[in-house]
């Protein structure tokens, strides 16, 4: 095996040098050239390479590459589009959050205001009620005092009458006979003084 590979290396330059003449001179000798340097096969290989590679090139250029390029472009477009869409949605979400927060702040402020108002109103009402009640109480107190005074006055007046009656009764019982009413009254008056 080493012999044959060594042969290959020796034969290679020889065949390469002999190539220009190989087509005409060598075939008579059954000396086999190293295949890759065998010029007899060159025309066939070149021709078929040109045919096959040419077809391959045309097929790739006309069919495969537009398709692959299209697929990749469509995908890139789609990705850009999706990213844009996502960015827009994110913007919308951010705007919604901002709006929500603003509304929340407004609502809070409103609630505070309403609470304040309610508490103020309640305070004012309570104050009013208290004042009214106080005034009423004051009035009732006044009335009560007035009635006490009148009752007292009446009572005092009646005390005089009772004293006169009592006095006349006592005088009757002690002295016998009726005493003069005006005298009794004057006496009671002077005593109660």
């Amino acid at each position: 095996m080493f012999v044959t590979s060594a042969y290959a290396q020796e034969a290679a330059p020889a065949a390469a040098e002999g190539d220009p003449h190989a087509g005409t001179a060598v075939p008579a000798a059954e000396h086999e050239a190293f295949p890759p340097f065998d010029a007899k096969t060159f025309p066939s290989q070149i021709l078929w390479l040109v045919i096959t590679f040419g077809l391959f090139y045309l097929f790739l250029k006309r069919v495969v590459m537009p398709r692959l390029g299209g697929i990749i472009d469509v995908r890139n477009d789609r990705i850009t589009q999706d990213l844009d869409h996502a960015a827009r949605l994110k913007g919308e979400a951010d705007a919604a959050v901002a709006a929500y927060e603003q509304e929340l702040a407004e609502a809070k402020a409103n609630a505070n205001k309403i609470g304040q108002q309610a508490s103020d109103a309640a305070k004012a009402e309570a104050e009013g009620a208290r004042k009214k009640l106080e005034a009423e109480l004051e009035k009732k107190l006044g009335e009560a005092e007035a009635s006490i005074a009148s009752i007292k006055a009446r009572a005092m007046k009646e005390v005089g009458t009772i004293a006169e009656d009592t006095t006349s009764a006592i005088v009757e019982a002690l002295v016998g006979g009726k005493a003069d009413k005006s005298e009794i009254a004057a006496a009671v008056k002077s005593a109660s003084r």
């Binding site: 096969t41 025309p43 066939s44 290989q45 078929w48 096959t52 590679f53």
Partner: peptide, 12 residues
Amino acid sequence: YDVSFTNSSLFM
């Protein structure tokens, strides 16, 4: 020229 369809052509 010998432009036969060879095993090389086949594999191309």
